[in-house]
């Protein structure tokens, strides 16, 4: 284990090398990520199929609105088509209204838990990482979601892209402490 990060970690005292406390687990998991919410209720594993159903809807939209098309992404970055701007813009508007309503009416999950939001902290990663991501996005014509969808439509060479993206993520994890944040 890289000791430099351990020293920086305020909850280090709770941790031993082979047994990780829940607090430490949360601390690591919440780095550079979107979703850290956990349910306090224990569900059987097959409850996860509800997320798969949402994913299926998403996958169908990806293909049918040509969002996973390399050509559409090229058009977007050349300002030759409104299509992708329309898709992302509409999605953001619907998302903003949804989140507003969930917060305003304190809507709970179907299991009765309250829905949590966490303010994002700014760091330089959003600048440097964002730029690198954008370069890759225009090259592959796909962000992470569409990559999986492209493979499903028969573009098997994209498997290489996914494996390389996993390697890129791993490399980031390896060098994370040395990168500016």
């Amino acid at each position: 284990m890289d000791t430099s990060t351990i020293k920086n970690n305020p909850i280090n005292g709770l941790v031993t090398d082979n047994k990780m406390s829940d607090a430490m687990d949360f601390e690591v998991r919440s780095l550079d990520t979107m979703c850290v919410n956990e349910s306090q209720i224990q569900h059987p594993w097959w409850y996860n199929f509800k997320y798969m159903i949402v994913g299926i809807v998403f996958g169908i939209v990806f293909v049918k609105a040509e969002i996973i098309s390399w050509f559409r992404i090229q058009e977007m970055f050349r300002l030759q088509s409104f299509h992708m701007y329309g898709v992302i813009g509409t999605a953001v508007v619907v998302g903003v209204i949804s989140v507003f309503l969930i917060k305003k009416f304190k809507i709970k999950t179907i299991h009765g838990e309250s829905i949590e939001f966490h303010p994002k902290k700014f760091n330089k990663g959003q600048i440097y990482g964002g730029l690198l991501f954008g370069l890759g996005w225009a090259l592959t014509g796909a962000c992470p979601g569409p990559l999986f969808a492209q493979i499903a439509t028969g573009a098997f060479s994209v498997i290489i892209v996914v494996l390389s993206a996993i390697a890129g993520t791993w490399t980031y994890g390896y060098f994370r402490d040395k990168l500016p944040h």
Binding site: Y128, G129, G130, C143, A165, A167, T169, Y172
Partner: peptide
């Protein structure tokens, strides 16, 4: 692919 994976995680 490497840029997508590295960049997205770096950006969070």
């Amino acid at each position: 692919g490497f840029l997508v994976g590295f960049g997205s995680r770096y950006a969070g």
